[in-house]
Amino acid sequence: MATSQVETVGSGANKLKLAAAVLLLLAGLVAFYWLGKQGALVQWGALLAALVAAVVVFFSAQTGRDLWAFGRDAWREVGKVVWPARKEAIQMTAYVFAFVVVMALFLWLTDKTLEWFIFDLILGWRK
């Protein structure tokens, strides 16, 4: 039987950093609206400064470092993918479009046949 692991926020310092990042983000949003009369430059400056500070604090926490490592590993895996050649990609796209057209025609024909069968033959609504 496979056991699943649930990762939780571990240390108190990590929790504090995450809470600080959230508070900085909220403070930036509040400052953006609170500084509405100061001008757009001040508004956006406060928002961007708080956002940058929140991102820096988040990535200094273990959760942020784990997210960064995940992104780095994902990018490394993308580099290992064997991508199809242009000709093969165009052919597969054409196959998909052809299949969609065939299925659309099939579903339309099925719909019209059922419509004719139910409404004309069984119910006799159309004369």
Rank of each mutant, 00 (worst) to 15 (best):
L67R: 09
A2I: 13
F97C: 13
G124S: 03
S4R: 14
F119H: 13
A20E: 00
L107S: 09
L47E: 01
A27M: 02
A53K: 00
G36K: 15
K127H: 09
L25F: 15
W34A: 14
T110K: 10
T113E: 12
S4V: 14
K127E: 11
A85K: 10
I122T: 05
L35S: 12
Q62F: 09
L67C: 04
L41P: 07
L123D: 08
A40Y: 12
K80V: 03
A98L: 07
N14A: 05
G64A: 03
E77V: 03
A61D: 05
A49K: 02
V9E: 08
A27L: 03
A69F: 05
V100T: 08
L18I: 02
Q91Y: 06
L109E: 07
G39I: 00
A85S: 14
A2H: 15
Q43P: 02
T8K: 14
V52E: 08
G79S: 02
F97E: 08
A61S: 15
A49S: 08
L105A: 05
L105G: 12
A50K: 04
L47F: 15
F119Q: 11
Q91E: 08
V22M: 00
I122G: 00
I90H: 07
V96W: 12
V56T: 04
A21G: 00
F119K: 11
F106A: 07
A20L: 12
V55M: 14
L105W: 06
Y95F: 07
V96N: 12
L51V: 08
K37H: 15
V82L: 07
M92R: 15
V81N: 06
V30C: 06
D120K: 13
S11F: 02
G39N: 00
R72M: 11
W34R: 04
W44N: 10
A19T: 09
P84I: 02
Y33F: 13
R126K: 13
E88R: 06
A69I: 09
S11V: 02
A54Q: 00
A31T: 01
W116Y: 13
S11G: 11
V30D: 05
T93N: 04
A98H: 00
A104P: 05
L105Q: 02
R72W: 07
K17C: 11
T113N: 10
F58S: 03
A74P: 03
T113F: 15
W108A: 14
V22S: 01
F70A: 14
T63R: 14
K37D: 15
G45M: 01
R126E: 06
T63W: 08
R76Y: 02
T113S: 11
A19N: 10
A13T: 11
W83T: 11
V101S: 03
E7W: 12
V102K: 08
W108Q: 11
L114D: 07
L41M: 07
T8C: 13
T93C: 07
K127R: 11
V78F: 14
K112Y: 15
E115R: 07
A89T: 04
A20D: 01
W108R: 12
F106G: 02
R126W: 11
G10T: 09
I118M: 09
G28E: 01
Y95V: 04
R72E: 14
W34F: 12
L48P: 03
L18G: 00
A85I: 05
R76A: 13
K15E: 12
F97L: 13
F117P: 07
